[in-house]
Design a protein around this nucleic acid. Structure first.
Length: 521
RNA sequence: GGCGCUUUCGUCUAGCGGCUAGGACACAUGCCUCUCACGCAUGGAACACGGGUUCGAUUCCCGUAGGCGCUACCA
């Protein structure tokens, strides 16, 4: 059947808005499958519903894949010799095939208006347009040929429906689910083509395009499983069963909490993106968060998504695209829907963040500092950024696993580093660390320490330590935590000698003074 | 309602007739320590239920229940 053909798969979104993260995963699986097989990945735009077209969506989708590192071999914006790849540009092609079905008596023309159908559905419970009802409707099966011609000539709108023979068990051989069987009697005579916009519906366009584009495997979401038998029937009707693609229906992505599939609202509610890139809705002006803008690395998103619904079986989870390509196996995909665990997505980002040298974060740090109002003059800004960069590198780079910080995003760095740049404004008495380490006698002890520090000329780590250590020894005072409260405001930061030296004598004493005067307990 | 798919720790999953049911995230505890974090160690935590088949079922089959999807001139 398809064994000796070159593997060709496609990802075919509708340009009705931003690309949903579930769509990203579908595309990723297609990509992994294609690359592993040395095959080709096609990017097709399914814009057969002219009423739902959203400007900018197509560009958004292309940009998303560019960011994620998912590359297409042909399709809209990528070229190729199976085009055009935008369905709205393939009207004539579809028309030919619709006519072919009509001529063979495998489809028929129906004039029932949407209103008539609505009424029918209201009056007849569970109404379905199929073999049991089609002879009571207004279509080319019930109307004389002359009447059909007349109605068309008069400009009445019509649709072409697929004539499904009832009572047949239709088999779909799914790579993930095995043999799925549905009786054709439960299928309705699907609309294949609408005269209103001269465009086919999804089902017809999909089969025609997959056939013409020589697609060998259809890897798509589980929501398509119920219509897969219809697609099989269409391949049969055209006589294309020999080259019919193999199907693989992927489990859906479910809400992190509650019931149902993952939606945009979940992201808004729980504070995580459901789109790869930030999206500005051209109609409402509404802005939806994107993974990229939230500070996710594309590798992290890819890795996380790849493992949602598929697992290579080993114990290694942090995998590069190359490794994913090597290990990918459609038949090992899980069958049940997967809850979207954004906490794990953050963990993956953490893993990849620490694989990158901190130097790469400079632009983002720059932005954070500016947002925090750290700059005052261009010189100071440059200096501060440089300092912060140094600190960040020291503080976060993966030196022998000793200095890993618990950060998921570069932006997490600011709360962990802010004390390098700004003095604590207030001392939070609700802070456990402050309460525990600043007692009635502490102000006096800090006064002593401040006096001691003020005698140090060369304010270096070594010199500070050389003074403070013996003093602590003699007096029995353990000054570090209170000292930390004064300089940081809470229980964070590096070694106190290091911190003091970094801040300098003046700033250190200033912060201590402020703490001594303003903390009362 | 009808049809289809599905069901292992809270979550993602490994398992493809015989295992103390494994890992990761999350959580908890301990060690380390001038704090946080890192690191290390430890811990709690699952085969939806009922029937079969079998010497033996988490694994195969059938029901039931739950979950998900489809049921448009949307994809």
């Amino acid at each position: 059947m398809t064994t000796d053909r070159k593997v060709r798969v496609r990802f075919a979104p509708s340009p009705t808005g931003p690309l949903h993260i579930g769509g990203v995963r579908t595309a990723l699986y297609n990509y992994l499958f294609a690359r592993q097989a040395g095959g080709e990945l096609i990017f097709r735009i399914e814009d057969t519903d002219s009423t739902r077209f959203v400007p900018g969506a197509e560009e958004y989708i292309i940009e998303s894949f560019r960011w994620l590192g998912i590359e297409f071999d042909e399709g809209v914006s990528f070229g190729g010799n199976h085009g055009p790849y935008r369905q709205s540009e393939r009207r004539d092609i579809y028309k030919t095939y619709v006519d072919q079905l009509l001529a063979a008596g495998k489809a028929y023309i129906a004039f029932d208006t949407p209103e008539e159908l609505d009424n029918k559905r209201k009056e007849v419970e569970n109404f379905q347009y199929d073999a049991s009802t089609r002879m009571q409707m207004r279509n080319s099966l019930t109307l004389p040929a002359s009447e059909v011609e007349r109605l068309i000539a008069e400009g009445n709108q019509y649709v072409v429906r697929f004539k499904i023979e009832p009572g047949r068990d239709v088999q779909v051989d799914d790579i993930i689910r095995g043999m799925v069987s549905i009786n054709s009697s439960v299928l309705d005579d699907k609309v294949l083509y609408k005269s209103a916009d001269q465009l086919p519906t999804y089902h017809l366009a999909n089969i025609v395009d997959d056939h013409l584009m020589e697609v060998t495997h259809v890897i798509r979401g589980e929501e398509w499983l119920p219509s897969a038998p219809l697609h099989v029937l269409l391949y049969e009707a055209f006589g294309w069963t020999d080259t019919m693609p193999r199907f693989a229906h992927l489990p859906l992505l479910l809400k992190p909490v509650g019931n149902g599939k993952l939606s945009k609202r979940d992201g808004d509610k729980l504070g995580f993106p459901v789109f790869p890139l930030e999206w500005h809705d051209p109609k409402t002006g509404e802005v939806s968060k994107g993974y990229r803008e939230q500070g996710y690395l594309p590798e992290a998103v890819v890795n996380f998504l790849a493992l949602l619904g598929w697992n290579p079986g080993g114990e290694k989870e942090v995998l590069t695209m190359q490794e994913l390509i090597q290990m990918f196996d459609l038949s090992k995909c899980s069958k049940a829907g997967a809850r979207f665990d954004y906490v794990k997505a953050m963990w993956f980002n953490h893993q990849y963040l620490l694989q990158h040298p901190a130097m790469e974060w400079t632009p983002q740090l720059d932005k954070i500092l500016r947002a925090e109002g750290i700059e005052s003059t261009p010189e100071r800004e440059a200096q501060v950024v440089e300092m912060m960069k140094q600190k960040v590198i020291e503080y976060t780079d993966n030196e022998g696993n000793k200095k890993k910080r618990n950060i998921s995003f570069v932006s997490d760095l600011w709360p962990l580093c802010r004390f390098f740049f700004t003095a604590p404004q207030s001392y939070d008495s609700a802070d456990k660390f402050v309460r525990k380490n600043w007692k009635a006698e502490t102000a006096g002890e800090m006064r002593q320490l401040a006096n001691l520090l003020s005698t140090i000329d060369n304010f270096s780590v070594e010199d500070i330590k050389a003074k403070v250590e013996p003093w602590a020894e003699q007096t029995g005072i353990r000054p570090w935590n209170a000292w930390r409260v004064a300089l940081v405001g809470t229980g964070q930061g590096p070694d106190m000698y290091e911190l003091s030296a970094f801040l300098g004598k003046e700033e250190t004493l200033k912060r201590m003074e402020h703490a001594i005067e303003s903390i009362d307990c």
